[in-house]
Structures are given as C-alpha cells and as structure tokens.
Design a protein around this nucleic acid. Structure first.
Lengths: 117, 117
DNA sequence: TATGTTGCTTTCTTAAAGGAAAGTGCTATA
DNA sequence: TATAGCACTTTCCTTTAAGAAAGCAACATA
C-alpha cells in the first residue's frame, strides 16, 4: 500500500536550499559579507561601501551575522574605542554562492539589455 | 587630486549580486523553480510539493517568475481547463546557484548539528 | 441534484523588513 | 572652549511579505 501523491518529491533539494536562505536572507547580508571580505573592517567604512544602507539596518545585520558565526566583532582599545569586523573562516564557504550570484547577475543584465523585443 | 574615501570599493561584486537577489528574492521563488524543474507542472502539485505555501502566495510568485521569463504558463483546453507550468530554458541558468545553495545548506546543517559547544 | 476537481481570487490580519532623522557618549584635537 | 569623528541607538513611520480562511466558476461524474 503506498501513499498516493500525484506530485514529484523535491524536498531533498528544497530543504537545504531553504536552510541556506534562512541564514543569508534579505537584501543586505551578502553585500555586508562581501564588503568585509574585501577588506572593510570599520562600521563607517562598511556603511560607506554599501549604497543605501542605514546604520540601524547595518547594526542589526552585523549582529545576526555574528550570531551565525560568519563574522567576528573585535574590540580595539584605544583613544576612541574602535571596532573591527572581520570575516570568520566560515564565511569563506559562502564564496561559491557569491560567485554564482555575481555571474548570474552580470549575465542577466546583459540579457535584459540586449533583448528588448 | 583623488577623492579620499577610506573604504575598499566592492561595488563590482555587490551590484550584480543585488541584481540577482532582486529576481530570486524571498522564501519561495527558488523552491518553486526547483519543484517545476523536477517535473511538477500543475498548480496543485506544485503547492503540495512545497510545504507551507498557500495558494495566494503561489499564484503571486508564479506571476512574477513568468514576468522574469523563468517559467511558462501553458493553457491546456479540455473538460476542466488545465494549466501547465514549465521551466523556461533560462531557468536552467539558475542551476549553479541552486546547487551552491543546496550544498551550503547540507554542510551548514552538519556543522550546527555536531558543534554545539 | 449533489459532489468533486482544478486553479485560482478575495478578504482580513499580522509580522517583518526597511528607511529617515536625530541623538548619545566618548575622546582627541584645534 | 568648540568641534569633529566613531559606532552606534532611538523613535517613528511606511512598505512588503506572509498566512489563514473562505469563496468561486466551470464542468463532469454519480
């Protein structure tokens, strides 16, 4: 006796994809990781490198990325206390995703530019 | 004279990534494309194959995917008119993204399972 | 006549994301 | 003393996403 379901099962793929989306969801997380990976480590620098982001949103996203062990927040004592944000080694595992998204975006732009009919 | 900006520029990467995110954003678009790619072509089958999706959300997302030329909506005349959703060839270009997300998700689950300290 | 199937739409409600603008506490330098 | 920089926080508000529940039009079969 087998359960009758008329549809094709694709949970094997959907589930891990959704797990990933839960971590890197939203408009800002990947741009922030890119910015930090490329060398920006100060709050203001990260903010300036990502057009349109507000300090409130940046602060919130940084906290979430830290919770997910993707970045580290390092306090540098000194005249004004400074903070350094750095990519955790785990963030490197996102590289294939970032490149796949970048490549697709570049190609997509080409496509919608040329084809207009 | 050069503009003084203290931060590293990463717009070359951020911009195409955001272009991509604008197309496949949200919780549902990739799961829907996966479901259709795997062989589900009927509204109800797609709905059943994706846990938690409501018909309202599915209808809306299908329209957007059609606008982005990622899927086709084919009307099959008959006793009750049926609709077949099919992946456009362009949807195949998303495969590297889907696999990158799937792999990361599987690995992430392993990581958070084992490391608990 | 009643019921079921398909592919949705409609209405209502809540939750989450995002944005604008100003403020805060600290300190160093002019 | 005044100003400026840093790393945020706070408040308020708008927009978007999402979810629950029900309904509907067309036909076909029992």
């Amino acid at each position: 006796m087998e359960t009758k379901k008329g549809y094709c099962n694709c949970l094997e793929t959907i589930k891990p994809v959704r797990d990933t989306l839960d971590v890197i969801n939203g408009k800002w997380k990947l741009p922030i990781i890119i910015s930090i990976t490329v060398g920006n480590e100060r709050f203001t620098d990260i903010q300036n490198s990502i057009p349109g982001i507000t300090p409130k949103v940046l602060a919130k996203e940084l906290k979430e990325l830290e919770e997910h062990k993707l970045i580290k927040r390092i306090i540098i004592e000194g005249y004004p206390v400074k903070i350094s944000y750095q990519a955790d080694a785990y963030a490197d595992t996102l590289t294939p995703i970032i490149y796949a998204l970048k490549d697709w975006g570049l190609n997509h732009r080409k496509k919608i530019m040329q084809v207009d009919v």
